[in-house]
């Protein structure tokens, strides 16, 4: 795959790397001040800050001098993807609130009532996913394909279960790194799909996740707080891309990237998670990267990049 022109690469560094570094600095500062117990909240704040900075700085880099790449407040004629920032922030907030509920429930409930804590955590999360998935599919598309909204909600919830479960088992930095890789792959897929804005959005979130991954990995902190941001954006962005733009890329490529995080579900099984750590880490990384490579290979076979 050829590299884009140097000028474009430098632009990407400016609107992705700097905000990612800013998000990472925020996470580092929070961990230093509040300790590792604040890891989840710090990760959520870091990814939100990194993405918000990148979205805002897009206006200075020529995408639209008067407004961010994605509007903070969708207007009346908003497209479904204009609701992505709002969806991500809602899920981040619900994720953190339900974490707090989980901590309180764990403190006060007897051990045999562990399932009550799970209900208190996952029912609100499922409800939040149900609400935001309606924002992210247009009425017209939802009317034409009745199962799209429920399928999107199911994908988002399952990805949240998979990513949150693995992150909270001590692999917070790695999960943020997996999400970063998935979003970078999504960004390249969008380039092949000839939708530049969607590529920028994916790259911005990939950069923000990378910043969180580096700090959480070094500090061995819990970065599960950042997971909902990726959950709220990934499947919806790829769905919007497939619905709103035609290209020769097979549908399978979009599915492979959108659902890549689900390969982590088997690692929630205690017997699997108890295997040798290096083996589990290697297996997880390979399983996450494999569908991404396959998706990009499919895209490269059917389309050409603008600068090729």
């Amino acid at each position: 795959m050829p590299l884009p022109p140097l000028e474009d690469l430098l632009l990407v560094l400016e609107y992705v790397a700097l905000p990612a570094a800013g998000g990472a600095a925020l996470v580092a500062a929070a961990l230093l001040l509040l300790g590792r117990r604040a890891g989840a909240a710090a990760a959520a704040a870091g990814v939100a800050f990194g993405f918000a900075w990148a979205n805002h700085s897009a206006r200075h880099l020529g995408w639209d001098a008067e407004s961010p790449l994605l509007p903070w407040t969708p207007g009346d004629d908003a497209k479904p993807w204009h609701h992505l920032p709002r969806a991500a922030f809602v899920l981040l907030a619900v994720g953190l609130l339900t974490r707090w509920v989980d901590l309180v429930a764990g403190h006060y409930l007897p051990e045999r009532r562990w399932w009550v804590a799970n209900v208190l955590v996952w029912v609100p999360r499922a409800a939040a996913v149900g609400v935001v998935s309606n924002w992210l599919v247009s009425e017209k598309t939802a009317g034409e394909v009745w199962w799209l909204v429920p399928a999107l909600a199911a994908a988002m919830l399952l990805e949240w279960v998979a990513l949150d479960g693995v992150a909270r088992a001590g692999a917070g930095g790695q999960v943020a790194a997996y999400q970063s890789a998935v979003f970078v792959a999504a960004s390249v897929l969008m380039l092949y799909h000839h939708w530049a804005s969607a590529s920028h959005v994916a790259l911005m979130l990939g950069g923000a996740m990378f910043g969180v991954a580096v700090v959480a990995g070094l500090a061995k902190a819990d970065a599960s707080g950042a997971v909902p941001a990726g959950v709220g954006v990934l499947p919806a962005l790829l769905l919007a891309a497939h619905v709103s733009q035609d290209s020769n890329i097979p549908q399978a490529a979009f599915w492979l990237v959108a659902l890549a995080p689900l390969v982590l579900l088997p690692f929630l099984v205690p017997a699997v998670a108890r295997r040798d750590r290096w083996f589990v880490r290697l297996a997880r990384a390979v399983l996450v990267l494999a569908p991404l490579v396959a998706a990009l290979a499919l895209a490269a076979r059917h389309e050409q990049l603008a600068f090729e």
């Binding site: 497209k79 993807w81 247009s138 799909h193 000839h194 939708w195 530049a196 804005s197 969607a198 619905v243 709103s244 733009q245 035609d246 290209s247 050409q304 990049l305 603008a306």
Partner: peptide
């Protein structure tokens, strides 16, 4: 031809919608 694809995308004419 590649510009044509980008022009048809939601960035410009959004021809699918």
């Amino acid at each position: 031809p590649k510009l044509t694809s980008h022009l048809k995308s939601p960035d410009f004419f959004g021809v699918k919608d």
